[in-house]
C-alpha cells in the first residue's frame, strides 16, 4: 500500500530533434484551427461591446488560442512528455475505423450484429485472445448489454431480436 510508485511502463526514449518537431506540429495544428475559427467568427458578425454579435466571443477565444499556440511554437524544446509515433499507430487507426463502422451500422442493422463483430475484431484481431474466449465474451457481453439497456432500463436501442 505504501509503495506508492508502482512500475509504470516507460515510453521509449524520444530523440530531442523528433520531440521538437512533434511539439512544433502539435502547436501548429491549434494555431491553424484558431485562425480558421477566427475568420469564421468575424464572418458571423462581431457587433460592438455594448451589443456583442454572435461572433465576438468565438473571436476572443480563437485569438487567445492562436496566441497561446504561437508561444508554444516558439517554446518547442522537448519537455519529456512527448512520445514517438511508431507503427503501432496502425492498430489505433484500425480501432478508430472499426468504431466508425460500428456507429455507421448501429441504426442500419440494429446493435446486436455490429456489437458481436466489434468484440470479435478487438478481442481476436487486436487482442489476440483465443477463439474460445472471443466467442464466449462477445456473445455474453452482447446479451448482457441487451438485457441491461433494452430489457432492464427500457432504453430504445435499435435492435433486431425482439424478446
Amino acid at each position: 500500500m505504501t509503495s506508492a510508485e508502482a512500475p509504470v511502463p516507460e515510453p521509449a526514449q524520444v530523440p530531442p530533434a523528433y520531440a521538437r518537431r512533434l511539439n512544433v506540429v502539435a502547436a501548429l495544428v491549434p494555431l491553424a484551427s484558431g485562425v480558421v475559427a477566427a475568420i469564421m467568427s468575424v464572418n458571423l458578425g462581431i457587433g460592438t461591446l455594448p451589443a456583442p454579435g454572435p461572433g465576438m466571443w468565438p473571436l476572443i477565444v480563437s485569438v487567445a488560442m492562436v496566441v497561446a499556440a504561437a508561444v508554444l511554437v516558439l517554446q518547442s524544446r522537448p519537455r519529456g512528455d512527448e512520445e514517438r509515433f511508431t507503427k503501432d499507430v496502425v492498430v489505433v487507426a484500425i480501432a478508430a475505423a472499426s468504431l466508425v463502422a460500428y456507429a455507421f451500422l448501429f441504426e442500419l442493422v440494429g446493435f446486436e450484429v455490429p456489437t458481436v463483430a466489434l468484440l470479435v475484431l478487438w478481442l481476436k484481431g487486436l487482442g489476440r485472445e483465443s477463439w474460445r474466449l472471443t466467442a464466449v465474451v462477445s456473445i455474453v457481453a452482447t446479451a448482457a448489454l441487451y438485457l441491461l439497456f433494452i430489457t432492464a432500463l427500457g432504453v430504445s436501442l435499435p435492435h433486431i431480436i425482439a424478446l
Partner: peptide, 22 residues
C-alpha cells in the same frame, strides 16, 4: 485486451442514449 472493447462498447452505447443520435 478484454476490458478495452467492453468499456468502449458501453461508452458508445451510452453516448447514443444521451440523444439517440448516431
Amino acid at each position: 485486451a478484454i476490458l478495452a472493447p467492453l468499456t468502449i462498447l458501453v461508452t458508445m452505447i451510452g453516448v447514443y442514449t444521451v440523444r439517440m443520435s448516431v
